[in-house]
Design a protein around this nucleic acid. Structure first.
Lengths: 337, 337
DNA sequence: GTGAAAGCGCTAACAG
DNA sequence: CTGTTAGCGCTTTCAC
């Protein structure tokens, strides 16, 4: 039998004070006499009173809720970021409402706008929408922070993990192992991260390595599907857009009878916890999720506090060489000419 | 320059009607003349008006937000459930606020109670708190449904994936492969699922198999840490509480020089997407996340609609035999006696 | 069909 | 220090 919820008025009445006093006590205002404060807390305890968050939100004009829009919860890297943000949010007495676009760039604008109505601030993880769309979201006057996608709007907060250098290292590593034909398994087509990684991967050309882009998408199955093209192209190594695709391509390569790394080397990106558990352990690039989460929250909190968005925070990262990369099994093919 | 948000009053004024009419139009009330309806929608469009969700919530007494408390976002199985719930919630025009207890049973009561203040209903995923604590949460008069943990309170909704039969099949499978010493890598100590799975695993005794429980916890690293105990106990197979631990134990076994499945067979539980991608592919038990998510949302929606909690929904599941289980490498050890 | 007005529960001036 | 009062923006009787 659910008892009716106690209101501030009831507490005021049983404590014999005004509702303003009750409000002050719960706001921790110092200007309340110890005697009244005690009567109020006692009455509240007795009635099991808790301030109504919605009423509070209406009066205050803020909800203590932050929205989080992610591309796909099926990606452990994304979940890792959420987890860290959750921790930060909780410490700051905020709640997170999470939404997943299922890798659909088209839905970002609508979902983001809708989400923005309900929250104090919005965090966009690797969004693929046009720059104007993202900038428009900031036009609602609430803090919007974009993670892992560069934006130049001065109204948007921006936190980036820059994996360019790490991927170039990875490329050099593969070149030094003798690989001469390397595939790049692409991420989502409109993804900023993909464009960026692809650019870094093309540094392989500097080492005289031929690099073949293979259509992908970002998910486990996209990795699976890429294996055939990789083999068909005669590549001896594949750099996958992320760890998830790396897992997928490794599985499919094996199904096609290719061994990793003996026949084909594979690398990922993000360094999800599983990367060090699979067989062979995955060569990849650290995702720095903890730091990214912390930086993101710091930025959100700052903007909630009225600060203008600071300059973008860029986190450098590094490659982690494990067992999924090895020497090229074949001599370099003779070029026609 | 963020323009001020339009209110219902402004719309009423520019449309030349009362705010009640505007409210009716947005509520889709049929009792508004086409003429006024048109003037209102036009004014709203012009002012870029959207009803203020918080004000609406206060007046209506509901937020269209559902809380979700999960043990650990690091578990892909948990993320899978969230993903499906997210889909259902979106279809029903509800938002989800997600919280993670980080496998801490102590925090469930507090976090759950706090969350319950802000939401219309609460979903608890595999909670480990005492039955009375969970029942108490239902005492707030809002729908509470518990997933993957049996509860007998008539106030609580309950959705379960019953893996008992599947695990007994798995046990029989291992026995038929000749294994005579099998380890069970335990999940979180107060977990209902763990108790249940352990009970099913003990059916190995019926096949004359000795089964050794090994302390675990549910996370990847808990799996890793279990490997040594498994080997020390001379087990030729290990049934892990979940896939994540199975991945961990496989990695650690390999590090200890044991091959899977040649030296040690490994099984998991949940059938996360990666289970079919790791090497060797993982023998496990289907988690039926999609169905569990759908059933859970159906129950939440029903209870939000005022229905009493239905009887528990129990989903049967099945084992999936893959490559991580194989014949026992050794003859049965001679028993002392 | 439409409007006026009384809340929903809380906060924050403003008086005293 | 404490109380009174006017909102926050919307919904919903209750009259007309």
């Amino acid at each position: 039998v659910p008892k009716e919820r106690a209101t501030i008025r009831m507490v005021a009445q049983t404590a014999g004070v005004s509702i303003a006093t009750v409000s002050r006590v719960f706001a921790g205002a110092p200007s309340v006499s110890a005697a009244l404060r005690h009567r109020v807390t006692e009455a509240a305890r007795q009635l099991d009173y808790t301030p109504h968050p919605v009423a509070r939100s209406l009066a205050l004009g803020r909800t203590q809720i932050v929205g989080l829009l992610v591309p796909n919860l099926a990606n452990p890297s994304v979940c890792g970021l959420i987890k860290h943000l959750l921790g930060e949010a909780e410490r700051a007495d905020h709640r997170l409402v999470v939404t997943d676009t299922d890798d659909d760039p088209e839905s970002e604008a609508a979902v983001g706008t809708s989400l923005l109505q309900h929250v104090d601030a919005l965090i966009l993880c690797a969004p693929q929408a046009d720059a104007e769309v993202l900038d428009a979201l900031a036009g609602h006057g609430k803090p919007v922070v974009v993670v892992n996608r560069a934006v130049d709007s001065p109204r948007l907060g921006n936190v980036l993990v820059d994996d360019t250098a790490a991927l170039r290292d990875l490329a050099a590593h593969l070149a030094s192992l003798g690989h001469r034909r390397v595939a790049y398994l692409r991420g989502p087509s409109r993804s900023w991260q993909d464009a960026r990684r692809w650019q870094a991967v093309r540094s392989l050309a500097e080492h005289g390595v031929e690099v073949t882009p293979v259509e992908g998408g970002g998910r486990l199955d996209d990795g699976r599907r890429g294996a055939e093209a990789v083999l068909r192209a005669g590549c001896t190594a594949v750099i996958a857009f992320n760890d998830l695709m790396a897992f997928g391509v490794m599985a499919a390569l094996r199904e096609h009878g290719a061994r990793v790394p003996d026949d084909v080397s594979v690398t990922g990106c993000d360094d999800v916890p599983l990367a060090r558990c699979v067989t062979p352990t995955l060569t990849t690039v650290r995702g720095r999720l903890r730091e990214a989460g912390a930086a993101t929250w710091r930025m959100v909190a700052g903007m909630l506090g009225g600060a203008a968005p600071e300059r973008p925070v860029v986190l450098e990262t590094e490659a982690v060489i494990r067992d999924s990369t090895g020497p090229c099994p074949r001599p370099a093919p003779v070029r026609a000419g």
